[in-house]
């Protein structure tokens, strides 16, 4: 499955769904973040939007992805 994260194309290794212990597991926002972010970034503070809509942190593991989705992962930065 192909999606975009922060404007960059990303091929999700698992595709739309994968089988785990005989059960079908769908690909979620959490899967995409795990693949895209460095280990250090995963421990940092960030916030996520999917197709320009906010995704609450508690929903990362539940929000399913489909081909062509676009994720924004934003981090704190200085501002005026």
């Amino acid at each position: 499955m192909k999606i975009h994260i922060n404007g960059e194309p990303l091929n999700l290794e698992n595709g739309a769904s994968t089988e785990e212990n005989g059960k079908v597991k769908d690909t979620t926002v959490a899967d995409a973040l795990q693949q895209y972010l460095s280990q250090k970034q995963q421990e940092m503070s960030f916030a996520v939007a999917l197709n320009s809509d906010f995704v609450n942190k508690s929903q990362y593991a539940n929000r399913l992805l489909k081909d062509g989705d676009s994720i924004d992962v934003l981090f704190p930065i200085h501002g005026g």
């Binding site: 922060n6 970034q41 916030a47």
Partner: peptide, 11 residues
């Protein structure tokens, strides 16, 4: 302060 995109290498 603000929020911005950041690539995986940048910290």
């Amino acid at each position: 302060l603000s929020l911005k995109r950041q690539n995986p290498q940048e910290q």
